[in-house]
Amino acid sequence: MSEHERRIVPRQGPDLDLDGDIPKYWFGGDAFKTRFFDAMSLLFPEGEKFFITCVRDFRDQIDDPELAAQVKDFTYQEGQHGMVHTRFNNRLKAQGIAVDEILENQKRIMFGTFRKRFSRRFTLAQTAAAEHLTAMMAHGFFNGELFADADPRIRAMYAWHAVEEIEHKAVAFDVYKRVAKGGYGTRIAAMMMTSFTFPFHVFLIMRHMFKVDGVKNPGRVWLKGLWWLYGPGGLYPRLMRSYLTYYKPGFHPWQHGDLSVYELWNDSFERNGGDAIGAADAVMAATRQRAAA
Rank of each mutant, 00 (worst) to 15 (best):
T287M: 12
I102S: 08
G225I: 05
R187P: 04
G231P: 05
G29Q: 15
K248L: 12
D30Y: 03
R7N: 11
F203V: 08
L67K: 12
E78G: 00
Q106I: 13
E263L: 04
D57L: 10
I166S: 02
A189L: 15
F74L: 02
K177Q: 11
L42R: 09
K107Y: 04
M83V: 14
G96F: 08
V261T: 13
W222S: 14
F88Q: 14
P14S: 09
K169E: 04
G273L: 10
G182K: 08
Q80W: 07
S119F: 01
A180M: 07
D15M: 10
L204K: 15
V71D: 03
I22L: 01
A148M: 12
G219I: 09
D267C: 10
R7G: 07
P249R: 00
N105V: 11
F74S: 01
L244P: 00
D63L: 07
E3N: 12
F251V: 02
Y236S: 09
A172N: 02
T134D: 01
H208G: 00
M284N: 03
M110N: 11
R11W: 15
Q77N: 10
A276M: 00
K33A: 05
G214R: 11
K93C: 06
H201Y: 13
D213C: 03
Y247T: 02
G250N: 14
A129D: 00
L124A: 06
A129N: 01
M209S: 04
K216Q: 11
P253Y: 12
R290P: 03
L146G: 07
N143I: 08
F58G: 14
R117T: 15
Q106E: 13
R207D: 14
F118I: 07
V221Q: 09
M137N: 08
K224M: 02
L16K: 01
L43E: 14
A276F: 08
S41L: 04
P14E: 05
F37P: 00
Y158E: 02
T194I: 13
F173Y: 13
M157E: 06
L124D: 01
L133P: 03
A130V: 05
F88S: 06
Y25F: 09
Y243T: 12
N90R: 14
N217Q: 11
G96A: 08
A279T: 04
Y230D: 02
A170F: 09
A125G: 06
K24I: 00
S41E: 04
R56A: 05
R108L: 15
P199F: 10
D151G: 07
V179C: 13
A280Y: 01
L43M: 15
Q255M: 11
R59C: 02
N90L: 10
Y230R: 03
F198N: 12
F198P: 04
M83I: 12
L103E: 14
A180H: 09
G225Q: 03
G140K: 00
P23R: 07
G20C: 05
L18C: 01
W227D: 13
L204H: 13
E46M: 08
N89L: 04
G273W: 05
R117G: 04
G234N: 06
K216H: 10
A125C: 07
Y176L: 14
M193G: 09
L67E: 09
L146C: 03
Y262E: 13
M110L: 13
Y76F: 15
K93M: 03
E164Y: 04
S242E: 10
H139L: 02
R178Y: 14
G140R: 00
K211N: 07
I188S: 05
G225W: 02
D19A: 10
A162D: 02
A292P: 07
L16R: 12
Q106W: 00
A190R: 04
D100N: 11
